[in-house]
Design a protein around this nucleic acid. Structure first.
Lengths: 205, 205
DNA sequence: AATAATAACTTGACAGTGTCAACTTCAATA
DNA sequence: TATTGAAGTTGACACTGTCAAGTTATTATT
């Protein structure tokens, strides 16, 4: 981010990540390669190795960027002064779907099972920040047997499963707006507590 | 499976698929290659090309096998004489989770965004048969605004999202039994109708 | 039964891939 | 100014998918 160009290229790392995102957008994981990255940045084929020890490290870096975009996409839809907690959940779901549908390659990279570096601190933090959004919007839901975690899991599973399904049956073709309508339909009724955090409560069954 | 050995190898195709499943099980998508497949089947590196035109075709074939196993896994948990429709849904979900957790590589191949041949008839049919299970167990759910499709989407998204999440945070570590407990917790209350199959119904939108 | 046709498989090649080792260049520091 | 070390280059290696051409064995035709 700093404008200094300390060396030959002047922060190549950022350029490589940008190129990687472009490649993902253009052709998905299949067309992403270190050598193409290098070429796109106008640099020799082995240059990226100085910034990403191996493919997994590159993937982790792209995922990190992805999680930031993901978090932004969700927060962008969040009402500034939330009134109805259900509406907030629906809105964040819209941001979720926006990200998934507008960044298919990146979404697949993040959630498609590609091995990642579980010790990458930046990645873990970026992922945590995305999860924080989920925690916030689920806080008002009345806790049942599984506590707040079960609520979060339910919401996450629902919206993620939907996103995955929409991408998966893409030829069957849902645009973003139709996907959001579907999200509205499948979100089950929820009970909210006036004071999000403290109530003796339980869900049915 | 038939014991005839009509040719040099005698049905190589099946052997290649079996080898592919083994490779997926052992090391995931990364370690799956046509040449390793050929080696594993004791055949020259270009032999597979006569059975699978390209990598995508091989993937499609493995997915097809995967969907069959997937369907079997769900049906295996289905009670023979279903009493409580909710219990049936929970049971099928258990089969779903069993498949995902015991066949991670294959599951990732099927649902991770890997390009597939959308014209592969066998694959499409195998996928449809998996979806049929879902349709069956969702049939008793009272239809709302979104019709039966919305119910199916909700159940599918929930269980799929959960499976994905469990795999994803695997180091956080849930075994199959804990995953199933979670499934029990996040399945929301559902209303069931007495006569599952015949009702005047219509899909929304 | 002999021959033609064809499916199954092999061999060899090609471009592209990730990764490693050795080298060069340049910026910063001592 | 000399040295150090990071950033980038060059070249190599084993591996990948895919194609073209050749070989072998089974099936079909006459």
């Amino acid at each position: 981010m700093t404008a200094k160009k300390p060396h030959h290229h002047g922060n190549l790392r950022a350029a490589l990540i940008a190129a990687g995102l472009e490649l993902l957008q253009a052709g998905g994981l299949e067309t992403l390669s270190m050598r193409k990255l290098a070429a796109k940045a106008g640099v020799s084929h082995a240059a990226p190795a100085h910034h990403f020890a191996n493919l997994t490290a590159l993937h982790s870096a792209l995922m990190t960027e992805g999680y930031k975009m993901f978090t932004d996409s969700m927060r962008a839809e969040m009402p500034l002064e939330p009134r109805d907690p259900r509406e907030t959940i629906l809105a964040v779901g819209r941001g979720y779907l926006n990200f998934a549908l507008n960044n298919e390659g990146l979404f697949n990279l993040m959630f498609g099972g590609t091995p990642r570096d579980h010790n990458d601190k930046g990645l873990n933090q970026a992922a945590d920040e995305a999860y924080d959004v989920l925690r916030e919007i689920c806080a008002p839901i009345v806790k049942g047997e599984g506590g707040s975690q079960a609520n979060e899991l339910m919401i996450w599973a629902l919206i993620h499963g939907l996103a995955r399904l929409v991408l998966h049956t893409k030829l069957g073709s849902l645009d973003t707006e139709q996907a959001f309508d579907t999200w509205r339909l499948i979100l089950p009724p929820l009970e909210f507590s006036a004071y999000p955090s403290d109530i003796t409560n339980f869900l049915a069954k």
